[in-house]
Nucleic acid binder design. Structure first.
Length: 412
RNA sequence: GAGGAUGUAGCUCAGCAGGCAGAGCACAAGGUUGUGGCCCUUGGGGUCGCGGGUUCAAGUCCCGUCAUCCUCCCCA
């Protein structure tokens, strides 16, 4: 019979990777909790137009990477390619703004983009991210960056942080026109990709790695000449405060983001250890997006991290609890073993009850492969064996054994 | 969407002048009379990714296809 394989670009995450996945998510959640972000559990599908209007009609994500289908009611639906759009939609639709103040939300889950699979890049991938709505102060930018920085530090990942400012919508628009005008004059010397970028996203040309393009970009107008005082002030304050918080960063005036909605602050956490330019987390401010999607004028900012990419970078997992493996020495002791295991688990002891039959040798071998720290042989008596030292101690009744286990003193 | 590499045992891979499909690890049994790891012996395991073609003969050559990895593009 022909076996069925998983769909291209999709993956089963199990074993060590699943452990890393959970560890990463739990670490993020711990910080979200401490920074008082509230979880929002979002749908995996949205109306296609949501992404067209937020991510940008011209972006690759919308143009060629979205999973789009028509449902039985004739609705044009997309599997979400990112989380921010849904978050903003929910903020508006649920009228959170009506409560006043500001809102700090986080989400986690699968995203879908139809693209060529690569290391740390899948068609279904997972992001964890957070958004802040209604906070215009630069202190929000600082805190968001600081939080992500702290999380990645705790995960013990090797990364660098790059930050930039794109200015507000109008000055960015003016700048983009100027840049385009400048690049047009040297269009012939640009690489094929950049000729295309000139039309789709001129800012991207700044980031091109081709020598010829780098040469042209060198004398191009820079965004800083077009920034409003307000934007300059924000950026300076952010840098100043990040330094005070001991956050290491690199100012990269060529850093641009692929999504259309960013304004002012943008940042990227990059690790050299993975390919594709190595971005593991990124985000920025998007002060116009909420109103653009029909909500009240609301400043906002956020970030998202790619969990698969982080899995590639996490090396050490926190230590597991010690494992106790219960081996009944014959079927006569199955019931006794079940009772013992159940009592151990009630004491919050990680307990593996051996579920198969076989020679003692094979069962002990199995216990060894399960990385058992201790084994308990069950017969008329109980024998506690320390797998590291090989020492054993005999207990004549369950009570005495449980007492020792509960006290945490392994005398063997 | 463009370019390149690779698919042989559960895993890592060898085999290519077309000529009986292999090794190490893992697994199982035993050596060791219910006690793991180290060592030794023996054993079970394969549609050589899939489909077609060339040939007396194809894992090996040719075409197609699917999948994986890498470089771009793009993104987290």
């Amino acid at each position: 019979m022909q076996t069925i394989q998983k769909v291209r670009g999709f993956q089963d995450i199990y074993g060590e990777d699943a452990k890393k996945y959970r560890y990463i998510v739990n670490t993020f959640r711990k910080y979200f909790e401490n920074f008082n972000f509230k979880e929002i559990i979002l749908p995996y599908v949205e109306d296609v137009s949501l992404f067209k209007r937020s991510v940008g009609e011209e972006t690759d994500i919308v143009q060629k990477e979205m999973y789009v289908f028509t449902d039985k009611g004739g609705r044009e639906i997309a599997l979400r390619p990112e989380g921010t759009a849904s978050c903003v939609r929910a903020y508006i639709e649920e009228k959170m703004y009506a409560e006043g103040g500001y809102h700090k939300l986080f989400y986690e889950g699968a995203m879908f983009r139809y693209e060529r699979p690569q290391a740390g890049r899948y068609r279904q991938f997972h992001q964890i991210g957070a958004e802040i709505f209604g906070a215009s102060s630069y202190i929000a930018d600082v805190e968001l960056i600081y939080m992500v920085y702290s999380i990645l530090k705790e995960l013990n990942i090797d990364f660098r942080l790059e930050i930039n400012t794109l200015g507000d919508f109008s000055s960015r628009k003016v700048y983009t026109e100027n840049l385009k005008y400048y690049l047009k004059r040297s269009e012939e010397k640009l690489c094929q990709d950049c000729k295309r970028r000139l039309e789709t996203n001129p800012l991207r040309v700044l980031d091109c790695k081709v020598e010829g393009c780098k040469e042209i970009v060198k004398n191009a107008p820079t965004i800083s000449d077009f920034l409003l005082e307000e934007s300059k002030f924000r950026f300076e304050k952010i840098k100043e405060n990040l330094k005070i918080l001991s956050v290491d960063f690199i100012e990269n005036s060529k850093l641009v983001r692929g999504l259309d909605y960013y304004t002012d602050t943008v940042f990227e956490f990059i690790s050299q250890k993975i390919g594709s330019q190595g971005t593991v987390a990124a985000g920025g401010r998007y002060d116009n997006l909420v109103s653009q999607l029909g909500g009240p004028d609301t400043p906002a900012l956020g970030f998202a991290a790619g969990i698969e990419r982080l899995i590639l970078l996490v090396e050490k997992l926190p230590k597991d609890k010690p494992l106790y493996t219960v081996i009944p020495l014959s079927q006569d002791f199955y019931t006794t073993s079940l009772l013992l295991s159940s009592k151990m688990r009630n004491l919050n002891i990680k307990t593996e009850l051996i579920l198969k039959e076989g020679s003692l040798k094979s069962l002990l071998k199995l216990a060894n492969r399960l990385n058992s720290d201790y084994v308990i042989f069950v017969s008329q008596k109980y024998e506690l064996k320390d797998m590291k030292s090989g020492n054993q101690e005999i207990f004549l009744n369950e009570e005495n054994l449980l007492e020792i286990l509960n006290s945490g003193e392994k005398t063997v």
